[in-house]
């Protein structure tokens, strides 16, 4: 049984915009799944439909075998949502926000308080439980939304850009927390614009663009499709002339910086050998962009011309 199954899911907004064009998607139990796509691709609409915040036009959503339409309560009980935007009562205390959410799931108040205490402690918010939520920092507000989403122990946790706008230290501690609950059995679906985050955390990935799933595979297979990797090379001495290296593409960024496109088939050793032979010493090396980002950009770009042709009269 899949944790999440979408079949022919379609959404047309009142203004006629078709946000989803009949997508199919399966997420297996225990997976850490990335749903990626550029702005306006349909990620938030998909998540909105799964979490009952957006009405679908057609298609089916099934959560752990429960159809979201026919077995609504059972399906909803499986889902926890961490939305993109802050959406809790800014005048309510931290503890009440989490306890009330448990109450909506039918958890009696005494048990709800115990669950809330566990979640707030896990997310390092216990000391702030009596504070009004609007007094929390941005990172704490994000953690509060995670605590609230976990208070009924959902089997499927959906995080819509959970680390947007938080500093790197908090982001990394969130990653560790999410890895831990995923190891404990919670299926996680993550959308993010930080592709490094998706590459680090997720085992499977789907890329959505213009309402269609344009890629759906496991992370190693997807990264294996990357045929060229771009590197930035810091040079020890100013570059006199750009060398010609067979199979590699070099671009001068400034006197001491080169961008090198390295085909996976050739590898990076050949590049260094060629540069050494040309008398060029390299003092530093880094990826021009995250590998997944490079692949993502290529995939999204490759689907755009096809669509443009469709609309050509």
């Amino acid at each position: 049984m899949t944790a999440l199954s979408l079949r022919s899911l379609r959404k047309v907004y009142k203004n006629g915009f078709e946000a989803l064009k009949g997508i199919d998607l399966d997420v297996q139990p225990g997976d850490f799944f990335a749903l990626l796509g550029p702005n306006g691709a349909g990620k938030s609409t998909t998540i909105g439909i799964i979490s009952s915040l957006v009405n679908k036009t057609s298609g089916t959503v099934s959560v752990h075998g429960h159809d979201l339409e026919r077995q609504r309560e059972a399906a909803k009980r499986c889902i926890g949502l961490v939305p993109q935007e802050i959406n809790f009562n800014q005048f309510e205390t931290v503890e009440n926000i989490v306890v009330n959410q448990a109450g909506y799931y039918g958890i009696p108040r005494r048990e709800a308080k115990r669950n809330a205490a566990r979640c707030l402690e896990q997310l390092d918010l216990w000391e702030r439980r009596r504070d009004v939520s609007r007094t929390l920092s941005g990172g704490m507000k994000r953690r509060l939304m995670i605590a609230r989403a976990l208070v009924h122990s959902p089997r499927l946790l959906i995080l819509d850009e959970p680390t947007a706008g938080v500093d790197i230290e908090i982001r990394r501690s969130m990653w560790e927390f999410l890895r831990t609950i995923n190891r404990q059995g919670t299926t996680i679906i993550l959308t993010t614009h930080y592709l490094e985050e998706a590459e680090n955390l997720c085992r499977h990935i789907a890329i959505i663009d213009h309402g269609l799933i344009v890629e759906h595979s496991d992370m190693p297979t997807l990264l294996g499709k990357l045929t060229v990797t771009d590197f930035i090379l810091e040079l020890k001495n100013p570059l006199a002339a750009l060398p010609e290296l067979n199979g590699y593409r070099l671009e001068r960024l400034d006197d001491r910086t080169l961008k090198a496109s390295v085909p996976t088939a050739l590898g990076i050793n050949g590049l260094f050998a060629g540069l050494s032979a040309a008398g060029i010493e390299v003092s530093g090396l880094r990826n021009a962009s995250n590998r997944l980002e490079q692949l993502f950009m290529g995939l999204v770009a490759s689907h755009r011309p096809a669509r443009a042709e469709q609309f050509t009269p």
């Binding site: 979490s51 800014q90 909506y104």
Partner: peptide, 17 residues
């Protein structure tokens, strides 16, 4: 206010008829 601050979503995602 619940709509305006969007915490109505807390109820809409939950299994509350």
């Amino acid at each position: 206010s619940t709509k305006f601050q969007r915490h109505i979503e807390e109820l809409l995602i939950a299994p509350v008829p």
